[in-house]
Design a protein around this nucleic acid. Structure first.
Ligand SMILES: [Zn+2]
Ligand SMILES: [Zn+2]
Ligand SMILES: [Zn+2]
Ligand SMILES: [Zn+2]
Lengths: 138, 138
DNA sequence: TGTAATGTCTCTAGTGACTAGAGATTCAAG
DNA sequence: CTTGAATCTCTAGTCACTAGAGACATTACA
Protein backbone atom coordinates (compact mmCIF):
# COMPACT_ATOMS: atom_id res chain seq x y z
CA UNK A 1 0.00 0.00 0.00
CA UNK A 2 1.40 3.33 -0.99
CA UNK A 3 0.39 6.96 -1.04
CA UNK A 4 -0.90 9.06 -3.91
CA UNK A 5 2.50 10.78 -4.12
CA UNK A 6 4.23 7.44 -4.53
CA UNK A 7 1.72 6.39 -7.18
CA UNK A 8 2.32 9.69 -8.91
CA UNK A 9 6.07 9.09 -8.98
CA UNK A 10 5.73 5.58 -10.35
CA UNK A 11 3.28 6.44 -13.11
CA UNK A 12 4.41 9.99 -13.82
CA UNK A 13 0.83 11.15 -13.49
CA UNK A 14 0.49 14.27 -11.36
CA UNK A 15 -1.29 14.01 -8.03
CA UNK A 16 -4.21 16.32 -8.90
CA UNK A 17 -4.66 14.40 -12.15
CA UNK A 18 -4.98 11.14 -10.23
CA UNK A 19 -7.69 12.70 -8.09
CA UNK A 20 -9.33 14.00 -11.25
CA UNK A 21 -9.38 10.52 -12.78
CA UNK A 22 -10.99 9.18 -9.65
CA UNK A 23 -13.65 11.85 -9.80
CA UNK A 24 -14.28 11.02 -13.47
CA UNK A 25 -14.80 7.40 -12.54
CA UNK A 26 -11.72 6.02 -14.30
CA UNK A 27 -10.20 4.92 -11.04
CA UNK A 28 -12.28 3.20 -8.41
CA UNK A 29 -12.34 5.17 -5.18
CA UNK A 30 -9.15 4.39 -3.35
CA UNK A 31 -9.00 2.93 0.11
CA UNK A 32 -8.31 5.49 2.81
CA UNK A 33 -6.19 5.62 5.93
CA UNK A 34 -7.84 6.49 9.24
CA UNK A 35 -6.75 10.05 8.47
CA UNK A 36 -8.59 10.02 5.13
CA UNK A 37 -5.58 9.75 2.84
CA UNK A 38 -5.71 7.56 -0.26
CA UNK A 39 -3.75 4.30 -0.33
CA UNK A 40 -3.08 2.27 -3.47
CA UNK A 41 -1.96 -1.25 -4.31
CA UNK A 42 -0.65 -3.03 -7.40
CA UNK A 43 -4.07 -3.11 -9.02
CA UNK A 44 -4.40 0.65 -8.66
CA UNK A 45 -0.95 1.11 -10.15
CA UNK A 46 -1.77 -1.08 -13.14
CA UNK A 47 -5.02 0.65 -13.81
CA UNK A 48 -3.42 4.08 -13.70
CA UNK A 49 -0.62 2.89 -16.00
CA UNK A 50 -3.27 1.74 -18.44
CA UNK A 51 -5.00 5.12 -18.31
CA UNK A 52 -1.76 7.00 -18.70
CA UNK A 53 -0.68 4.95 -21.69
CA UNK A 54 -4.05 5.33 -23.37
CA UNK A 55 -3.97 9.09 -22.76
CA UNK A 56 -0.47 9.23 -24.24
CA UNK A 57 -1.92 7.61 -27.32
CA UNK A 58 -4.58 10.28 -27.47
CA UNK A 59 -7.65 8.37 -26.33
CA UNK A 60 -10.30 10.51 -24.67
CA UNK A 61 -11.37 9.99 -21.08
CA UNK A 62 -14.69 8.73 -22.38
CA UNK A 63 -13.02 6.17 -24.65
CA UNK A 64 -10.80 5.05 -21.82
CA UNK A 65 -13.82 4.61 -19.58
CA UNK A 66 -15.31 2.24 -22.18
CA UNK A 67 -12.04 0.33 -22.46
CA UNK A 68 -11.82 -0.07 -18.70
CA UNK A 69 -15.41 -1.23 -18.52
CA UNK A 70 -14.46 -3.91 -21.02
CA UNK A 71 -11.35 -4.84 -19.10
CA UNK A 72 -13.48 -5.38 -16.03
CA UNK A 73 -15.55 -7.99 -17.89
CA UNK A 74 -13.05 -10.52 -19.28
CA UNK A 75 -15.76 -12.68 -20.84
CA UNK A 76 -17.26 -9.99 -23.05
CA UNK A 77 -16.56 -9.62 -26.75
CA UNK A 78 -13.68 -7.27 -27.40
CA UNK A 79 -15.25 -5.83 -30.52
CA UNK A 80 -15.81 -2.46 -28.89
CA UNK A 81 -12.11 -2.22 -28.00
CA UNK A 82 -11.08 -2.70 -31.61
CA UNK A 83 -13.70 -0.21 -32.72
CA UNK A 84 -12.38 2.39 -30.32
CA UNK A 85 -8.79 1.83 -31.41
CA UNK A 86 -9.73 2.03 -35.09
CA UNK A 87 -11.66 5.23 -34.47
CA UNK A 88 -8.70 6.70 -32.63
CA UNK A 89 -6.41 5.79 -35.50
CA UNK A 90 -8.78 7.44 -37.97
CA UNK A 91 -8.87 10.53 -35.80
CA UNK A 92 -5.08 10.72 -35.65
CA UNK A 93 -4.81 10.27 -39.41
CA UNK A 94 -7.35 13.01 -40.02
CA UNK A 95 -5.40 15.34 -37.76
CA UNK A 96 -2.14 14.55 -39.55
CA UNK A 97 -3.76 15.23 -42.90
CA UNK A 98 -5.05 18.59 -41.79
CA UNK A 99 -1.77 19.57 -40.15
CA UNK A 100 0.19 18.72 -43.27
CA UNK A 101 -1.93 21.14 -45.26
CA UNK A 102 -1.32 23.80 -42.64
CA UNK A 103 2.38 23.04 -42.69
CA UNK A 104 2.60 23.68 -46.43
CA UNK A 105 0.87 27.02 -46.23
CA UNK A 106 2.73 28.11 -43.11
CA UNK A 107 6.08 27.17 -44.62
CA UNK A 108 5.31 29.24 -47.68
CA UNK A 109 4.09 32.16 -45.59
CA UNK A 110 7.04 32.06 -43.19
CA UNK A 111 9.61 31.96 -45.94
CA UNK A 112 8.02 34.78 -47.87
CA UNK A 113 9.14 37.49 -45.48
CA UNK A 114 12.45 37.89 -43.72
CA UNK A 115 11.02 40.26 -41.13
CA UNK A 116 13.21 43.14 -42.24
CA UNK A 117 10.47 45.27 -43.75
CA UNK A 118 7.58 47.20 -42.29
CA UNK A 119 4.18 45.88 -41.35
CA UNK A 120 2.48 47.60 -44.28
CA UNK A 121 4.44 45.59 -46.88
CA UNK A 122 4.62 42.36 -44.91
CA UNK A 123 3.79 39.30 -46.91
CA UNK A 124 3.02 37.33 -43.77
CA UNK A 125 0.27 39.75 -42.86
CA UNK A 126 -0.96 39.94 -46.46
CA UNK A 127 -1.14 36.15 -46.66
CA UNK A 128 -3.15 35.94 -43.49
CA UNK A 129 -5.53 38.58 -44.73
CA UNK A 130 -6.28 36.75 -47.94
CA UNK A 131 -6.90 33.06 -48.24
CA UNK A 132 -6.90 33.45 -52.02
CA UNK A 133 -3.13 33.60 -51.79
CA UNK A 134 -3.08 30.11 -50.35
CA UNK A 135 -2.19 27.33 -52.74
CA UNK A 136 -4.80 24.88 -51.46
CA UNK A 137 -7.73 24.55 -49.17
CA UNK A 138 -6.86 23.86 -45.58
CA UNK B 1 -23.63 48.61 -42.88
CA UNK B 2 -24.85 45.13 -42.07
CA UNK B 3 -25.90 43.07 -39.11
CA UNK B 4 -23.94 40.52 -37.16
CA UNK B 5 -25.93 37.75 -38.84
CA UNK B 6 -24.96 39.05 -42.25
CA UNK B 7 -21.31 39.29 -41.19
CA UNK B 8 -21.57 35.76 -39.89
CA UNK B 9 -22.87 34.51 -43.23
CA UNK B 10 -20.17 36.26 -45.20
CA UNK B 11 -17.28 35.09 -43.05
CA UNK B 12 -18.69 31.75 -41.90
CA UNK B 13 -17.87 32.70 -38.34
CA UNK B 14 -20.76 31.99 -35.97
CA UNK B 15 -22.53 34.90 -34.35
CA UNK B 16 -21.56 34.06 -30.74
CA UNK B 17 -17.97 33.65 -31.89
CA UNK B 18 -17.98 37.14 -33.37
CA UNK B 19 -19.19 38.53 -30.05
CA UNK B 20 -16.52 36.47 -28.32
CA UNK B 21 -13.80 37.96 -30.54
CA UNK B 22 -15.06 41.42 -29.72
CA UNK B 23 -14.92 40.64 -26.02
CA UNK B 24 -11.37 39.31 -26.42
CA UNK B 25 -10.37 42.56 -28.08
CA UNK B 26 -9.69 41.12 -31.53
CA UNK B 27 -12.49 43.15 -33.04
CA UNK B 28 -13.00 46.77 -32.14
CA UNK B 29 -16.38 47.38 -30.56
CA UNK B 30 -18.89 47.61 -33.34
CA UNK B 31 -21.12 50.58 -33.95
CA UNK B 32 -24.65 50.13 -32.69
CA UNK B 33 -28.11 50.94 -33.98
CA UNK B 34 -30.45 52.99 -31.81
CA UNK B 35 -31.77 49.65 -30.63
CA UNK B 36 -28.28 48.53 -29.53
CA UNK B 37 -27.62 46.04 -32.32
CA UNK B 38 -24.16 45.76 -33.84
CA UNK B 39 -23.58 47.08 -37.35
CA UNK B 40 -20.49 46.35 -39.45
CA UNK B 41 -18.82 47.78 -42.53
CA UNK B 42 -16.17 46.61 -44.97
CA UNK B 43 -13.35 47.18 -42.47
CA UNK B 44 -15.08 44.95 -39.92
CA UNK B 45 -15.55 42.28 -42.55
CA UNK B 46 -11.90 42.37 -43.54
CA UNK B 47 -10.69 42.17 -40.00
CA UNK B 48 -12.90 39.22 -39.20
CA UNK B 49 -11.76 37.47 -42.38
CA UNK B 50 -8.19 37.96 -41.24
CA UNK B 51 -8.98 36.47 -37.84
CA UNK B 52 -10.85 33.57 -39.33
CA UNK B 53 -8.05 32.74 -41.73
CA UNK B 54 -5.44 32.92 -39.01
CA UNK B 55 -7.55 30.69 -36.76
CA UNK B 56 -7.92 28.23 -39.64
CA UNK B 57 -4.15 28.12 -39.80
CA UNK B 58 -4.02 27.35 -36.09
CA UNK B 59 -2.81 30.65 -34.66
CA UNK B 60 -3.90 31.30 -31.09
CA UNK B 61 -6.09 34.23 -30.16
CA UNK B 62 -3.11 35.75 -28.42
CA UNK B 63 -0.93 35.44 -31.52
CA UNK B 64 -3.67 36.94 -33.65
CA UNK B 65 -3.97 39.85 -31.24
CA UNK B 66 -0.28 40.56 -31.76
CA UNK B 67 -0.63 40.30 -35.54
CA UNK B 68 -3.56 42.71 -35.53
CA UNK B 69 -1.67 45.12 -33.33
CA UNK B 70 1.05 45.07 -35.95
CA UNK B 71 -1.40 45.52 -38.78
CA UNK B 72 -2.72 48.61 -37.06
CA UNK B 73 0.75 50.16 -37.16
CA UNK B 74 1.87 50.01 -40.81
CA UNK B 75 5.19 51.72 -40.10
CA UNK B 76 6.46 49.21 -37.54
CA UNK B 77 8.95 46.48 -38.29
CA UNK B 78 7.25 43.26 -39.26
CA UNK B 79 9.81 41.10 -37.49
CA UNK B 80 7.31 40.00 -34.87
CA UNK B 81 4.93 38.79 -37.59
CA UNK B 82 7.57 36.53 -39.08
CA UNK B 83 8.51 35.29 -35.64
CA UNK B 84 4.92 34.37 -34.89
CA UNK B 85 4.51 32.57 -38.20
CA UNK B 86 7.76 30.66 -37.75
CA UNK B 87 6.73 29.66 -34.22
CA UNK B 88 3.37 28.47 -35.51
CA UNK B 89 5.08 26.43 -38.21
CA UNK B 90 7.36 24.85 -35.62
CA UNK B 91 4.35 24.05 -33.49
CA UNK B 92 2.55 22.39 -36.37
CA UNK B 93 5.63 20.37 -37.27
CA UNK B 94 6.04 19.20 -33.69
CA UNK B 95 2.41 18.11 -33.63
CA UNK B 96 2.79 16.20 -36.89
CA UNK B 97 5.86 14.45 -35.58
CA UNK B 98 4.10 13.35 -32.43
CA UNK B 99 0.97 12.25 -34.29
CA UNK B 100 3.01 10.15 -36.70
CA UNK B 101 4.46 8.21 -33.79
CA UNK B 102 0.98 7.67 -32.43
CA UNK B 103 -0.24 6.60 -35.85
CA UNK B 104 2.37 3.87 -36.07
CA UNK B 105 1.53 2.42 -32.68
CA UNK B 106 -2.20 2.73 -33.19
CA UNK B 107 -2.03 1.06 -36.58
CA UNK B 108 -0.14 -1.84 -35.08
CA UNK B 109 -2.54 -2.11 -32.15
CA UNK B 110 -5.67 -1.86 -34.30
CA UNK B 111 -4.52 -4.50 -36.72
CA UNK B 112 -3.53 -6.91 -34.01
CA UNK B 113 -7.05 -7.83 -33.02
CA UNK B 114 -10.04 -8.46 -35.24
CA UNK B 115 -12.51 -7.91 -32.42
CA UNK B 116 -13.80 -11.49 -32.56
CA UNK B 117 -12.32 -12.68 -29.29
CA UNK B 118 -13.08 -11.89 -25.66
CA UNK B 119 -11.84 -8.99 -23.61
CA UNK B 120 -9.50 -11.17 -21.58
CA UNK B 121 -7.41 -12.17 -24.62
CA UNK B 122 -7.67 -8.88 -26.46
CA UNK B 123 -4.41 -7.63 -27.84
CA UNK B 124 -5.76 -4.09 -28.03
CA UNK B 125 -6.34 -4.04 -24.29
CA UNK B 126 -3.02 -5.76 -23.61
CA UNK B 127 -1.16 -3.24 -25.73
CA UNK B 128 -2.75 -0.36 -23.91
CA UNK B 129 -1.87 -1.89 -20.57
CA UNK B 130 1.80 -2.23 -21.41
CA UNK B 131 3.89 0.38 -23.14
CA UNK B 132 6.74 -2.14 -23.33
CA UNK B 133 4.86 -3.68 -26.23
CA UNK B 134 5.19 -0.45 -28.17
CA UNK B 135 7.91 -0.35 -30.80
CA UNK B 136 9.04 3.18 -30.02
CA UNK B 137 8.61 6.01 -27.60
CA UNK B 138 5.68 8.26 -28.30
C1' DT C 1 -50.46 50.50 -38.79
C1' DG C 2 -50.59 45.93 -36.63
C1' DT C 3 -48.73 41.66 -35.97
C1' DA C 4 -45.86 37.79 -36.29
C1' DA C 5 -41.55 35.71 -37.32
C1' DT C 6 -36.97 36.14 -37.10
C1' DG C 7 -32.87 38.27 -35.42
C1' DT C 8 -30.26 40.16 -31.74
C1' DC C 9 -29.16 41.51 -26.98
C1' DT C 10 -26.79 40.21 -22.33
C1' DC C 11 -25.73 36.94 -19.10
C1' DT C 12 -24.61 32.52 -17.23
C1' DA C 13 -22.91 28.03 -17.58
C1' DG C 14 -20.88 24.03 -19.95
C1' DT C 15 -17.13 21.65 -22.85
C1' DG C 16 -12.25 18.55 -22.13
C1' DA C 17 -8.56 17.51 -19.51
C1' DC C 18 -6.46 19.18 -16.62
C1' DT C 19 -3.70 22.96 -13.45
C1' DA C 20 -3.18 26.28 -9.60
C1' DG C 21 -4.02 27.87 -5.21
C1' DA C 22 -6.03 28.42 -0.36
C1' DG C 23 -6.50 26.77 4.04
C1' DA C 24 -6.90 22.74 6.98
C1' DT C 25 -5.33 18.23 8.37
C1' DT C 26 -2.23 14.08 8.52
C1' DC C 27 1.88 11.67 8.06
C1' DA C 28 6.88 10.31 8.65
C1' DA C 29 11.41 11.35 10.31
C1' DG C 30 14.39 12.68 13.82
C1' DC D 1 7.01 15.43 20.44
C1' DT D 2 8.04 18.54 17.10
C1' DT D 3 8.70 19.87 12.54
C1' DG D 4 8.25 19.89 7.71
C1' DA D 5 6.46 17.57 3.88
C1' DA D 6 2.50 15.42 2.04
C1' DT D 7 -2.25 15.17 1.62
C1' DC D 8 -7.09 16.61 2.04
C1' DT D 9 -11.27 19.34 -0.09
C1' DC D 10 -12.89 23.06 -2.53
C1' DT D 11 -12.95 26.72 -5.83
C1' DA D 12 -11.48 28.87 -9.87
C1' DG D 13 -8.72 29.32 -14.05
C1' DT D 14 -7.08 27.60 -18.77
C1' DC D 15 -8.53 27.84 -24.31
C1' DA D 16 -11.71 28.80 -27.77
C1' DC D 17 -15.64 28.48 -28.10
C1' DT D 18 -20.95 26.61 -27.68
C1' DA D 19 -25.64 26.39 -25.69
C1' DG D 20 -29.49 28.24 -23.57
C1' DA D 21 -32.69 31.62 -21.13
C1' DG D 22 -35.37 35.53 -21.25
C1' DA D 23 -35.84 40.18 -23.02
C1' DC D 24 -35.79 43.43 -26.77
C1' DA D 25 -35.28 45.01 -31.95
C1' DT D 26 -36.03 44.63 -36.66
C1' DT D 27 -38.24 43.19 -40.88
C1' DA D 28 -41.82 41.38 -43.87
C1' DC D 29 -46.21 41.20 -44.98
C1' DA D 30 -51.41 42.06 -44.55
ZN1 LIG E 1 7.14 40.82 -42.99
ZN1 LIG F 1 -5.67 29.98 -46.61
ZN1 LIG G 1 -9.62 -7.77 -29.18
ZN1 LIG H 1 3.37 2.95 -25.75
Amino acid sequence: MFSIGELSKRTKVKVPTIRYYEEMGLLVEAERTSGNQRRYDKAGLERLSFIRHARDLGFSIEAIASLIELQDHPDRSCEAATDIAVAQLADVRAKIKRLKLLEKELARISKSCDGQGVSEDCYVLASLADHELCHREH
